[in-house]
Write a protein that binds this DNA or RNA. Structure first.
Length: 266
DNA sequence: CGGACGGCCTGGGAGC
DNA sequence: TGCTCCCAGGCCGTCC
């Protein structure tokens, strides 16, 4: 389930390998992937992350937007001489670059999307890696809402890029119970939450993301952050801070993993 | 308007 | 072994 660190890892790799490249041909194997009426050929002038979206800026009047959702994967490889033009298993789209590189979009669950977009980008809240992600702004947002902090962190219109894994990991690091109402957090807690989110995300990017099952880097390699996780998927195992058992709880339809002892006060 | 919730989709794991 | 059931969750549409 790609979240900010996974998407950022993929974007950094794509920037190195295909930014500035000419896209000569594309194939959409599964129409459910979204509206896609891009002109061809076109040049990819820049590559960016927007929340969990991957954006290809182009020299034409539009951008290519990728969203991996749950099980999407972008793999980059050298075009082989005998390469079939038919889709591989779960392959939903394919892009051919003039350099000979081929970008394949795989997605078993078909939640992922690829879109040729001329109008504005989707509305995304604060970028946790951006300069404007400061404690004061976060505190204002938290105070103006009254939802479980866990669910607020998952809201892409408020903060862009956190998903279930990093929301849980950040709350653990900040010692905040996931069910706490956002407007009950003190200024000190907001400050700590901000720095915890940044720390967790930066560390996860360094480790190349979190591979549970589907996520892979563009060369097919797994990330390594799952080896360093503190709470996600660790229900019943000992808390790495206090030794008590990690618990799991449904909050707003999502499973939250946390330590009931050192994240007390829910 | 904010917030809660169901639907989309499939593979994999649990349980029998 | 093989079947059924349920869960994973990002985002959107719908409803209150």
């Amino acid at each position: 389930m790609p979240e900010l660190p996974e998407v950022e890892t993929i974007v950094r790799e794509l920037k190195r390998k295909v930014s500035g490249e000419k896209l000569v041909k594309f194939q959409i194997f599964d129409k459910r992937i979204g509206r896609f009426a891009a002109p061809s050929p076109l040049k990819v002038t820049a590559i960016d992350r927007h929340g969990k979206y991957i954006i290809f800026h182009t020299n034409r009047a539009g951008k290519i937007l990728f969203h991996l959702r749950m099980s999407g994967r972008l793999l980059l490889k050298k075009r082989q001489s005998g390469m079939s033009s038919l889709p591989e298993k779960y392959e939903r789209a394919r892009f051919y670059f003039a350099s000979g590189l081929v970008l394949q979009f795989f997605d078993p669950r078909r939640f992922g999307t690829i879109e040729w977009r001329k109008e504005n980008l989707p509305e995304i809240g604060l970028n946790p890696l951006g300069k404007d992600f400061v404690a004061e702004k976060l505190k204002n947002i938290l105070s103006s809402r009254s939802r479980a902090i866990k669910n607020l962190l998952l809201d892409q219109k408020i903060i862009g890029g956190l998903g279930n894994i990093y929301a849980d990991e950040s709350l653990w690091l900040a010692k905040i119970h996931p069910r706490r109402k956002s407007d009950s957090l003190s200024g000190a807690e907001a400050l700590l939450l901000r720095s915890s989110i940044v720390k967790v995300l930066r560390e996860a990017i360094k480790k190349g993301g979190f591979t549970l099952r589907d996520y892979r880097k563009t060369g097919g390699e797994s990330g390594r952050y799952q080896l360093f996780r503190k709470v996600y998927g660790r229900a019943g195992e000992p808390c790495r801070r206090c030794g008590k058992k990690i618990a799991a709880l449904k909050i707003g339809g999502r499973t939250a993993h946390f330590c009931p002892d050192c994240q007390g006060g829910g």
